[in-house]
Design a binder for these strands. Structure first.
Lengths: 209, 209
DNA sequence: TAGATTGTTAATCGATTAACAATC
DNA sequence: TAGATTGTTAATCGATTAACAATC
């Protein structure tokens, strides 16, 4: 449906475009030029045009980009115009936070199950969902079409659980553990390494000092 | 203390080096070559050498890098060999998860206070800490040396609270809101945009399909 | 010494910016 | 039509990789 040639650098900017264009849409603004968008987003107008030419037809010479059309097209490219079924693995503070978080984005991401690693939590209820035992993971995935797993478990069990998810046919893992999961190329892994993020912050504080 | 010339690309890899070199250290391994490290980390040996030459003296020709020495040096560069005082703003699920998270890394990051935006939470206790009212932020920061604020509040209050933190003399903000904070250059902002991360994941699923 | 491996320079690659012709 | 602004090509910049001399 979509040229493969879209670079990673561009792809990683798409959500940011989506957010800013969404704001314009909310404000009832109908068209936007590359230079207006570049000022808001604090990037160059040239880059905006270079990026958006992926969505051929979104822009009109001498006019700019149609906001509604652009929003739709970027949303398609990102994939948020369809709903993804998600399970959350790990029911600690972080797992719970992720469940709450995705409940907001219900249109694109629906949490279908929460699995607790800590067996004492199994059976408890969070956000009207029962915390399931990890033992039932494979069974659950057989009975429910799940595309994405958010992985918020202790680091030492990450690799093993990722392997199970892979065998069970997961398409993508949103990885919150501080490990680099080694999975076949077909599976998308998006890392949110909080420890690394915090260290990057700390490291950048170090220079100015 | 440190050459300014260290590029962002390198800086962002430092935590990863730190993690892998730390594993070697834990395993009691005394020396490592750029090629061994490159295999483990799945990057090129050339890049490893290029990156690590920042820490002049860490490597020895014909031998490799001394693991303990390297770990120490990278830790210094990142700033984890000293302790930073942190406050967490926002006591929802995410704020709580961040408090728990940083309790692990107590040697480098110590949570000194938690501030609730939702006033109904004020006075409750989490991890032996009282949830404070945001009204007392300035007073608290006057009485305690705080360098870092983790910002886990609703998007709409992000900009306003960031401004207050700036005025109160914060050095760095670990930003979990889906906004691009506009702060003077002196203040370090490290973004963890969960929404963008999830969309990047979704977007990358889209290609393979 | 010979072998190994760094440190560093040069070559390549990719991403961003500049420029401008095409066109609404 | 004239003015505006995209789409796209060329130039620049920065980051990664390759190569190899230095040296332990």
């Amino acid at each position: 449906m979509f040229e493969k040639s879209i670079s990673n650098a561009v792809r990683n900017r798409l959500p940011k475009y989506y957010r800013y264009v969404g704001e314009l849409l909310d404000d009832g603004i109908e068209k936007v030029s590359s230079s207006e968008l570049s000022v808001r987003m604090n990037i160059s107008a040239s880059l905006v045009r270079q990026d958006l030419c992926m969505f051929s037809g979104a822009g009109l010479q001498g006019y700019g980009y149609d906001v509604e059309d652009l929003y739709e097209k970027i949303g398609d490219a990102i994939g948020v115009n369809q709903c993804h079924n998600v399970i959350v693995i790990g029911a600690g503070n972080l797992g719970q936070a992720l469940v709450s978080y995705m409940n907001f984005a219900r249109n694109s991401f629906a949490v279908k199950g929460i699995f607790a690693v800590n067996s004492r939590l199994v059976g408890h209820v969070f956000k009207r969902m029962e915390l399931r035992s990890l033992d039932n993971l494979e069974q659950f995935m057989k009975e429910n079409p799940i595309q994405i797993a958010a992985l918020a478990v202790p680091d030492k069990s990450a690799e093993r659980i990722a392997g199970r998810l892979q065998k069970a046919g997961i398409k993508a893992i949103w990885n919150f553990t501080n490990t680099d999961l080694n999975l076949p190329k077909g599976i998308v892994v998006e890392n949110v390494h909080l420890a690394e993020s915090l260290m990057q912050l700390s490291s950048r504080m170090n220079i100015s000092a």
